[in-house]
Amino acid sequence: MNKELIEKILKFRDERNWKQFHNPKDLAISINLEAAELLENFQWTGSDTEVSAEKLENISEELADVVIYCIYMANVLGLDMDTMILNKLSKNGEKYKVNNSYGNKNKYTRLEILS
């Protein structure tokens, strides 16, 4: 992840002395609340892919809020975003082998094992 961008995000927080309020529980709640606000853009749209141009700006802002809170949480817990993401991609690669999951939306526990 872009270290310069992370530093800007943390500087924004620190200039406002907000780190004192950032504990894992409250950050997890905030991530969930922002994700719910993101989801609200798709409520009653009639289709999973129906996104109007006017909603796109709000979707962008809510998605940014989710990512920012995730960065705050990783920082508070001393987790490196790059390492965290690369480790998860590796684990997912083991669960979702290309030959079993290509074009398949099923969870890894429901994939057929193909040799």
Rank of each mutant, 00 (worst) to 15 (best):
M1W: 09
K3N: 11
E4T: 14
L5Q: 08
I6C: 04
I9C: 03
F12K: 07
E15Y: 00
E15P: 00
E15G: 01
W18Q: 09
N23I: 11
N23L: 03
P24F: 07
K25V: 03
K25N: 03
K25F: 05
L27K: 00
S30Y: 06
S30T: 11
I31K: 02
I31Y: 01
A36E: 06
E37S: 05
L39G: 08
Q43S: 08
Q43I: 10
G46T: 07
S47V: 00
E50C: 06
V51Q: 00
A53E: 06
E54S: 13
K55D: 11
K55F: 05
K55R: 14
K55Y: 07
L56R: 13
I59F: 00
I59L: 01
E61H: 07
D65M: 09
V66W: 01
V66T: 07
V67G: 10
I68C: 04
Y69L: 14
Y69P: 08
Y72A: 10
M73L: 15
V76T: 05
G78R: 03
G78M: 06
L79F: 12
D82V: 14
T83N: 03
K88C: 06
K88Q: 08
L89R: 12
S90F: 10
K91W: 09
N92G: 11
E94A: 11
E94W: 12
K95S: 06
K95D: 04
K97F: 04
K97V: 09
K97I: 09
K97N: 11
V98A: 15
S101L: 06
G103A: 05
N106G: 03
K107W: 12
K107P: 13
K107Y: 13
I113D: 14
L114C: 15
L114E: 15
S115P: 02
S115V: 02
